[in-house]
Structures are given as C-alpha cells and as structure tokens.
Design a protein around this nucleic acid. Sequence first.
DNA 1: AATATTCGTACGCGCTATGCGACTTAATGA
DNA 2: TCATTAAGTCGCATAGCGCGTACGAATATT
Lengths: 119, 119
Amino acid sequence: MISKRLSKLRKEKNWSLQYTANQLGIAKSTYAGYESGYRQPSLEALKELAILFETSVDYLLGMTETYTGERDTLELTGKDILSQIGLTIDGKSLSQDELNQFIAFIRLKREMEANENKG
Amino acid sequence: MISKRLSKLRKEKNWSLQYTANQLGIAKSTYAGYESGYRQPSLEALKELAILFETSVDYLLGMTETYTGERDTLELTGKDILSQIGLTIDGKSLSQDELNQFIAFIRLKREMEANENKG
DNA sequence: AATATTCGTACGCGCTATGCGACTTAATGA
DNA sequence: TCATTAAGTCGCATAGCGCGTACGAATATT
C-alpha cells in the first residue's frame, strides 16, 4: 500500500529515485526499496516521507483516502504576516522585504515548472 | 513522542499493558517496549495502535497538534518545521524542497550584503 | 558512432533492534 | 499467607533495515 502511494506521489512530482533519496538524505537503493515494497521505512523515515510529499502518514499507510492531513497552515502572502508570527533563518529575523522576494521567487519558479509541464 | 502518547491514551482508557497487548495480538513485553521507548512498533503494529486507540497515526507520531499558538517566532531552518506548521503561498503549500531553496537564497543574499559592507 | 550519464531495478552483507518468553518486583485480594 | 495481577527489565534469536554495488536500458553528450 505504502509502496504504491509513494510511487504515485513521486511520479506526480516528476522526481527521480536519486533526487528523492537525496531530498531525504538516504541511499537511492533504500528509497527504491520502499517503492518496490522490498523494504519498509523506519518511523523517522516515514515522517520525512510525509513531509517531503506534503501528505499525511495516515495517507501513506492507507489509513485514509484523503491526500493531506489537517495541519495548521500559515499563508505567507497574508497581510502583515510578520506582525503575527516572526520568521527567522539562522536566528536572524526575516524582513518583509526578504519575504516578498521569496514569494516572488516561488511564484516565478512555479510558473516555470508549469511551462515545463506543458512541453 | 510515540511512547508518551501511547501511555497517555492507554491510561485514559484504564487499560493494563497485558490487556492492551492482547487486543493487539502481541506480547506484553512488546507493547511495554513501545511505551517505554525501548522499542518502535512496525508499520503494521502502528496502524493497529491507531485503530485500537481510535486516533490517527499522525497523532501517534507527533505530526499533528505539536504546534502551539504560544510560539511567537518560527525558525525556518528547524528540523521538520513543515510537520509542525504548513506554510502556503497563494494557497499552495510550500514543499521542503522550496523551503530549502529559500533558505539557501537568503543565506546567499545575506552573505553578499555582508561583503558589500566590507567595501 | 562512440562514449558518458541517468534511470529504474535487484542482490548480498553487516548490524541494528524488533518481538518473544522468562524473570523480578510491587500492589491487591481471598 | 498465598495467589493473582500489574508493570517493568533482560537476554536471545533472527527478521529486516540501510547501504554499496552492479546491471540493462534509455537518454544525453562528445
């Protein structure tokens, strides 16, 4: 069950086994074992998988059919978001300027990916 | 994390280790190992635990309800930060991949600014 | 065309740690 | 007092996790 869902999720993102394994910090053969059903991930690896694929552990294990779990979410484009919650990187707080640049960066990246998928 | 939650759930139901193990069809020492943190359940056992305690696997693993509203700052380089709080841009959730790129981007930007100040 | 790189798949090995039964200790009741 | 139940710990056998490695096929690079 978990193997099929992992395979499905990875292919949806057009990721290779090697790239996915790199993201997780594990060997390619290890991740490949998860997808083939030859291996089962440890609990720690399982959590990492859910985070990487933006889904829930319950979904990976086939406990639920719904894609995502119900985690608290924070919309970064929200007005005055930094006054609600301070965001830091390496202990140094993020400026609104930096956040705006990031949002623009992600929007551009997503747009480019969307164009790539067109062919 | 999982050990604490199991212990809490079992005590809420006033179940003994033996009774709980019987419900799961495993040895008492095995289940006791889960609660003490000495052992980790297999994925199959994990699912059974979630069913028995009428909860989710994500809760047992601490993927949900770990984010407390008390926190006023969020360190983005924190491990498994996205398991604590989902970040979205334009409603679409941010992947760990994208977050890593952002962190690298900000670090580079800060480094360049530091060099500019040198002269 | 020849070579190099990337992809998915599979195998063997070392070693961790899982699951079990047996044992101990403490608390409760007949 | 003895029996019963609960909780906790330990040693052992072995299942299986994670890794490196290697293969054929497909794609990219020269």
